[in-house]
């Protein structure tokens, strides 16, 4: 639990800042049978990021990284919208989009686990080509769709709650079930923590690695549906742009080490919420929204410095030295 302390403190601080500037920040109302409020908005707009970050968490826990999720977001949204615009039916569209996403994830996993290519390089391929693929699907256009069933995924409400939030909760529950109730989490952590020891303990690392990349792509696919559904259109060029970087950031803020091993789903959710709240906060306190990136840069730097053993050692040593000097002086 101690690992979640700092993210919690940061999130609380951000929320506190909001209350200062927007007194009614915490109020949640029901209007026309829908939940309304700033907190609900943070959850609703943060939903795609949380999804992508959940998938990224498992990938990073195996010691990998997936740069291609942003492209998968675009591809999934593009394919779904294309199908719907061709009257294929929402169900078919969703199944096709998610199926393609998983296939792309398996491709990444295959390159990493079987071909032995460094994850950052292997997923770079799809990161570059995927954008083109998404535009190929939409034929370079922004496909606009108008389908109430599809609208539900990212913009609709179910039982007064935004559907996106429910979806995130469902994926979170499934992920938590797979990793913590079933043994997937432990095996992932073992592979990421010590690959050779895992092999000697009889763990089939390849299958697990392919699976986490497929899962990350599936999460990205769902996020892609959500984003395109929310704006009722697919933009192959800009949908999910840089979401992979935000997702990696969320994972790192949540206390999962980029070196692999121990991961924390709760931490990742917190990390994603921090990023989303940061964006909201910047809007609400009247700082130009363009500066969000500056704050992100600051957060990444601080978090990484705190996680760096070399940094801690340097700071710690200096402290120890000054303490020692004081003792001598005394």
């Amino acid at each position: 639990m101690r690992r979640l302390l700092w993210p919690l403190v940061i999130l609380a601080a951000l929320l506190a800042v909001n209350v200062l500037f927007t007194p009614g920040f915490f109020s949640i109302q029901v209007r026309e049978g829908h939940l309304y409020g700033s907190l609900i908005d943070i959850l609703r707009f943060g939903a795609p990021l949380i999804l992508v970050a959940l998938g990224m968490t498992l990938v990073i826990a195996t010691g990998g990284i997936d740069l291609s999720v942003g492209s998968v977001v675009a591809i999934s949204g593009a394919l779904a919208c294309l199908q719907i615009s061709q009257d294929a039916g929402v169900f078919t569209a969703v199944v096709l989009a998610l199926g393609l996403s998983v296939a792309l994830g398996v491709w990444n996993g295959f390159l990493v686990a079987n071909a032995g290519i460094q994850p950052i390089i292997a997923t770079l391929i799809l990161m570059v080509a995927g954008r083109g693929l998404a535009q190929l699907i939409t034929d370079g256009q922004i496909i606009t769709v108008n389908d109430p069933a599809f609208k539900l995924i990212g913009g609709g409400y179910l039982l007064t709650v935004p559907f996106g939030i429910l979806l995130v909760l469902a994926v979170l529950a499934v992920t938590a079930f797979l990793t913590r109730r079933l043994a997937l989490g432990m095996l992932i952590e073992a592979v990421g923590g010590n690959a050779e020891a895992s092999r000697l303990a009889g763990i089939r690392a390849r299958g697990i690695i392919v699976m986490v990349y497929a899962f990350a792509a599936l999460c990205a696919g769902v996020a892609g549906l959500m984003i395109s559904s929310n704006v009722s259109s697919a933009d192959g060029n800009n949908a999910g742009l840089w979401i992979e970087l935000d997702a990696i950031l969320a994972v790192v803020i949540g206390g999962t080490s980029l070196a692999g091993g121990r991961f924390s789903l709760a931490g990742t959710v917190l990390g994603a919420l921090i990023i989303q709240t940061l964006t909201t906060t910047i809007y609400s306190i009247g700082v130009p929204p363009e500066t969000t990136l500056l704050f992100k840069a600051l957060v990444v730097t601080v978090v990484c410095l705190l996680q760096s053993a070399a940094f801690r050692e340097k700071v710690f040593k200096r402290r120890a030295r000054t303490a020692g000097a004081q003792e001598v002086a005394a």
Partner: peptide, 20 residues
Amino acid sequence: AFDIQPFIVTLAGMFLARGL
């Protein structure tokens, strides 16, 4: 100096420069 992955450090640099 702090032995942090170039990927992350330059990612922060990317955010910083774009933000500026």
